[in-house]
């Protein structure tokens, strides 16, 4: 008993004061991409060709587009670029309510908005229960969602909880490219959640199919399931996930999205 108590004292209080304090991210963290296309040779499209998921596209006027909904945040484009023009910044706040806002461009600002309509925000802001549905996810996204329940992130202090039954849930959080074999189960789970409800697509697979987008075995989230929040990454960092959830519920204002 004494050892148990002593251990408790030694393990200390570990909850990180997010969002009041900026998150601790590793130095080599790969967040929002950035590119200086003034360095590009005309006609060069090495980065576009190197991308394993076709997330990059180049327009004629040196405009580079990167679809964060597809991006794996790997190194293939940065290594392929002969001029070293592309790199990843440490900006972790990437979530958006609109799929089109996930497209980063070197010519305009990246300002994705993620907030629920007033009615649902009011309903869910202080208590949100989610059912997680893995539909072909590789267990990396799932693992970093699970991490939010540890004392370090302490998700429940925001009133957000993961529950076992969709009947107890206010929404679903989908990971994976939605395999053909999970398609019906996903629809049934969605339908079992009482209205009004929310849907979150987490990770490149759920948002765009990711690596599996051209697989006949992966169907993607059916159009009958409207998505309220997209959280990009492969997998997204737990702080990216938490940040997305807090923006959605209006707990963290969207104004400080690029801090």
């Amino acid at each position: 008993m004494l050892t148990t108590l002593l251990t408790r004292i030694k393990q200390k209080h570990r909850t990180y004061p997010f969002p009041d304090k900026k998150p601790l991210l590793p130095e080599r963290f790969r967040g929002l991409p950035d590119a200086d296309c003034s360095k590009c040779d005309s006609g060069c499209d090495e980065c576009v060709k190197a991308c394993p998921v076709n997330a990059l596209s180049k327009k004629e006027n040196q405009e580079l587009l990167i679809d964060l909904g597809r991006c794996l945040f790997c190194l293939d484009c940065t290594e392929a670029c002969p001029r070293g023009a592309i790199h990843f910044s440490n900006i972790y706040s990437l979530s958006s309510a609109h799929r089109k806002d996930l497209i980063w461009s070197n010519t305009g600002p990246f300002k994705p908005k993620a907030v629920l309509d007033k009615k649902r925000r009011k309903l869910f802001q202080r208590s949100l229960k989610l059912r997680q549905v893995s539909a072909g996810g590789c267990n990396a996204c799932e693992a970093d969602i699970n991490v939010l329940n540890t004392p370090f992130f302490d998700l429940s202090r925001f009133g957000i909880q993961f529950v076992a039954s969709p009947r107890h849930a206010d929404g679903i959080l989908i990971t994976g490219p939605v395999t053909q074999n999970m398609h019906d189960a996903l629809i049934k789970t969605y339908e079992a959640v009482p209205d009004p409800k929310i849907v979150i697509a987490l990770g490149a697979c759920a948002i765009s199919g990711g690596l599996y987008s051209d697989h006949a075995e992966a169907t993607g989230i059916p159009s009958s399931i409207p998505v309220d929040l997209y959280i990009p990454g492969c997998p997204p960092h737990p702080f990216t996930i938490l940040d997305g959830l807090l923006h959605l519920l209006g707990i963290k204002p969207n104004e400080d999205k690029r801090d």
């Binding site: 991308c51 998921v53 053909q180 697989h215």
Partner: peptide, 21 residues
């Protein structure tokens, strides 16, 4: 079988830029 994504099928005729991923 619920998680079947067709990985082995996609690896055939590789390696290519997707294989490592």
């Amino acid at each position: 079988g619920y998680q079947h994504r067709g990985v082995e099928k996609a690896l055939l005729n590789g390696p290519d830029k997707k294989t490592l991923h």
